[in-house]
């Protein structure tokens, strides 16, 4: 075991990327002058903390690379063995466990006609969205720029459309009744929908300030079984919001209560070809 050199151990690293260009190269030191040493305060702290780390890791062989520290990933990629219909059912069950209200709709392509009273099977998506907004008494709805126009085609004009725009202030949004979005992916095992701010979901604030969120999941394509499968589909460069049921808290006596700051009503619509035998 060679004690580690206090200098950079990773010559392949992208050098000194710079905290706002704050530190000069070559300021690393094995001495610890303390953060309040003379000189520009804060500027030396990067070098200081790095030197402390390298001293602290004197037991780590100098030649060891991060990849040589073993990580055994013997855990499951997904728990259980399910077909896609069963995965969608599990998603519905787990969403409902955490008080999301789950609906099913047929794909717009599959139903030319609006929902007929007493008709068997699921309603069309536009009819269902219109009904949910009406039941809620919504007077306005926030609309992401890329939301398919047909989704709101049955919503009366009296319900004001509020397009998602950068100029919208939080106060503007506070006056909006509801918001309708698509999602990026949904996770069956945990009952989670993930938004990634794509055009059919809009900026993060529109799904946060209004008190009623209708989220449409295209099934089975957008549904995965597990957290590992979801991460594979997501782009970390985009801002992500993982939503598992409406806002809740366990802060009073460690007992779960729904409804604090986020939307207090989350309605999820599973839209897709409705297969026979599904409840």
């Amino acid at each position: 075991m060679t004690p580690r050199d206090p200098g950079s151990r990773n010559p392949d690293d992208p050098g000194n990327p710079g905290a706002q260009g704050a530190h000069a190269p070559g300021t690393r030191s094995t001495q610890d002058p303390g953060p309040h040493a003379p000189g520009a305060p804060g500027l030396g702290s990067r070098a200081l903390v790095m030197a402390r780390i390298r001293r602290a890791l004197a037991d780590v062989p100098r030649a060891e690379t991060p990849g040589e520290v073993p990580v055994e990933r013997t855990y499951h990629r997904v728990h259980g063995d399910r077909g896609s219909a069963e995965t969608v059912d599990l998603l519905a069950e787990h969403l409902a466990d955490y008080r999301a209200i789950v609906h099913r709709a047929d794909t717009p392509d599959h139903t030319g006609a609006p929902e007929a009273p007493g008709a068997p099977g699921a309603p069309s998506l536009p009819a269902l969205i219109a009904r949910l907004l009406a039941d809620r008494g919504a007077t306005s709805v926030a609309v992401p720029p890329g939301l398919p126009a047909s989704w709101l085609s049955d919503v009366p004009d009296a319900v004001r459309r509020v397009p998602d725009a950068a100029e919208l202030t939080p106060h503007d949004l506070d006056a909006v009744s509801s918001v309708v979005t698509a999602c990026a992916v949904a996770i069956a095992e945990t009952g989670t929908v993930v938004l990634d701010a794509a055009p059919d979901q809009g900026r993060r604030h529109i799904t946060l300030v209004p008190d009623h969120h209708i989220c449409v999941i295209r099934v089975p394509d957008q549904v995965v079984g597990s957290v590992p499968e979801a991460l594979e589909r997501l782009d970390p460069a985009r801002p992500l919001t993982w939503i598992s049921g409406p806002s809740a808290t366990s802060d009073i006596e460690l007992d779960r209560v729904e409804g604090v700051h986020g939307p207090r009503t989350l309605e999820v619509i599973l839209v897709g070809p409705q297969t026979a035998g599904r409840s």
Binding site: D97, Y98, P239, T241, S244, G245, P246, S247, G262
Partner: peptide, 13 residues
Amino acid sequence: TAERMNPYTSTWT
């Protein structure tokens, strides 16, 4: 919190 998943997780880059 003994939940399958907490209500909200935010990530930003």
